[in-house]
Amino acid sequence: MRISPTKFISLLFFIFSAFYLYTAHQIVVFTFDENAPFNARTFPIYLGWAGILISSLIIILPEKTKIEVNHKHLDYKSIIYLVLISLIYGAVILKIGYFLSTSLFLIASYYFLGERRWLWMFLLSFPFVAVFMFLLHGLLNIYLRDPLLKYLGIIG
């Protein structure tokens, strides 16, 4: 019996989501946030359950069409580059901060995925991250450690 690539990837996603849900329950929250309707643990827990639910449905429900994967046409080099820059991003985010590391990660991702229009790469990274950081830091009062923005006096 041969397992389809879709079912196999869904099984891997199920395992990843279960591990993510387990680690989400390990997130330490302040004692006064423990019974709050939304805290640092809430969204990761819901995200873990959503991943488990979606991957379970894909595994259980029958496939409508069989998908045949031609490995000759897959771009493994881009996948390796994306994994490497993701590891680098995880290693440097605490050192250089959320804003700069996320913006550079997005630019590198766009580049390795084939985008060469630098104006679009810039517009879809730095301003997007700035708006997202404003939403988190300014509106939701979620503090993100960012030495660069602290040095520039933008955040306290």
Score class of each variant (00 low, 15 high):
Leu148Glu: 12
Tyr46Asn: 04
Gly97Tyr: 07
Met121Ala: 10
Phe99Ser: 04
Ala50Thr: 08
Pro127Asn: 10
Leu144Phe: 07
Gly138His: 10
Tyr111Ile: 14
Ser17His: 11
Leu21Ile: 14
Ile3Trp: 06
Pro62Arg: 00
Lys66Pro: 01
Leu87Val: 03
Ile59Arg: 04
Phe132Leu: 14
Ser103Asn: 08
Phe32Gln: 14
Val83Asn: 02
Tyr98Gly: 05
Ile88Glu: 03
Arg117Phe: 15
Ile9Glu: 03
Thr31Cys: 07
Tyr151Gly: 07
Leu84Asp: 05
Arg145Asp: 13
Gly97Cys: 05
Thr6Met: 02
Phe38Ser: 06
Trp120Ala: 15
Leu104Val: 08
Thr42Ser: 13
Leu21Gln: 14
Val29Trp: 00
Phe43Val: 14
Glu63Gly: 05
Phe16Gly: 10
Ser101His: 02
Tyr110Ser: 05
Ser103Pro: 09
Leu84Tyr: 03
Phe32Val: 10
Ile155Asn: 04
Ala24Gly: 15
Gly138Phe: 10
Leu140Met: 06
Gly90Ala: 09
Ala130Cys: 12
Lys66Gly: 03
Leu106His: 11
Lys64Ile: 08
His25Phe: 15
Asn141Val: 03
Glu63Tyr: 00
Ser101Arg: 00
Ser78Lys: 06
Arg41Leu: 12
Leu119Val: 13
Tyr151Pro: 05
Ala130Met: 13
Ser56Gly: 10
Leu144Glu: 05
Ile96Phe: 06
Leu84Val: 04
Ala91Phe: 09
Ser86Trp: 02
Gly156Val: 11
Phe16Leu: 14
Arg116Val: 09
Ile85Tyr: 01
Leu74Cys: 03
Ala24Ile: 15
Ser55Thr: 06
Leu124Val: 14
Ile154His: 13
Glu68Val: 10
Lys64Tyr: 08
Ala36Ser: 13
Asn35Arg: 13
Leu12Trp: 04
Ile60Lys: 01
Thr42Tyr: 13
Leu100Ile: 15
Met1Gly: 10
Trp120Met: 15
Ile107Leu: 07
Leu87Gly: 04
Phe99Met: 05
Phe134His: 11
Phe132Lys: 07
Tyr89Gly: 07
Ser56Asn: 07
Asp33Ser: 11
Phe14Met: 04
Val28Gly: 02
Asn39Arg: 01
Thr42Val: 11
Glu34Asn: 11
Pro62Asp: 02
Thr65Asn: 11
Phe105Glu: 05
Val69Glu: 02
Leu82Ala: 02
Lys66Gln: 09
Lys95Val: 08
Phe14Arg: 01
Arg116Ala: 10
Gln26Cys: 12
Ile93Ala: 02
His137Trp: 14
